[in-house]
Amino acid sequence: MLKIYNDGRRITASISGDIDHHAARELRVSIDEVIASSRPELLIIDMAEVGFMDSSGVGLILGRLKAVKAVGGELLVKNAKKEIADMIRFSGLSYVIVNSEKRDYSTL
């Protein structure tokens, strides 16, 4: 499931449930719609409610990174659990992860 918070310049996509190949298709379409219509400066993917993610999630993040860069924006992933953060690191995408213990993102 997906909840979108959009203030025009910053979009937070809060995902809940499992991110796998089956779920990724719908998530991709919904997030891309709001990227295209709002052209955000920052897209935050909030993983707090994601209990499971496999490499399909890495594809989803990479794809959204491309989409948001194409409109001149940035992407950050926050609140990823350990296994999920590890998975994202496999892809060399560590720099998109915001670690709640190390960085203050209360202003994001």
């Binding site: 990724a24 991709r28 496999d54 490499s55 399909s56 890495v58 594809g59 989803l60 990479l62 794809g63 998975m87 496999f90 892809s91």
Partner: peptide
């Protein structure tokens, strides 16, 4: 299809 090619690595 946005596959990352990481399945076997994982």
């Amino acid at each position: 299809e946005e596959r990352s090619g990481l399945g076997f690595t994982v």
